[in-house]
Amino acid sequence: MMDFVLGHINYWLIVAVMMVGLYTLMSRSNLIKKLAGLAIFQTAVILFYVSLGKVTGGTVPIMDEKYTLYSNPLPQVLMLTAIVVGVATTALGFALVIRIKEAYDSVEESEINKMDEQD
């Protein structure tokens, strides 16, 4: 039982961080804060993926004669590109927020909804 907990507790903590991000995204009305929550959620998913590639006693996947056991390079490759793509798409989200601010003069979702209902 103890081994099971020690082997899985880091997954559970990552899931907890992920859910904090999702909760920020869903419960907060400020659009910039929503995007920060989305970024936290995304980073937690990336962290989960990379942690699947870890091998105990393994080393960084750069070949050298001194080592025989390496961590899995595949999750690292996939997540490396995901981070850069993630920041580019988050920037697109921020651009949309700036345009919404110009159009509605507010970045609060509740106020924007109210304005839409008035029309």
Binding site: F4, H8, Y11, V15, G53, T56, L69
Partner: peptide, 19 residues
């Protein structure tokens, strides 16, 4: 999601499927 992780190999298990 936490229920889903009970199926996963422990952190750093070299014999797990992804490796």
């Amino acid at each position: 999601l936490i229920y889903g992780t009970h199926d996963l190999a422990e952190l750093g298990d070299a014999s797990s499927a992804p490796h």
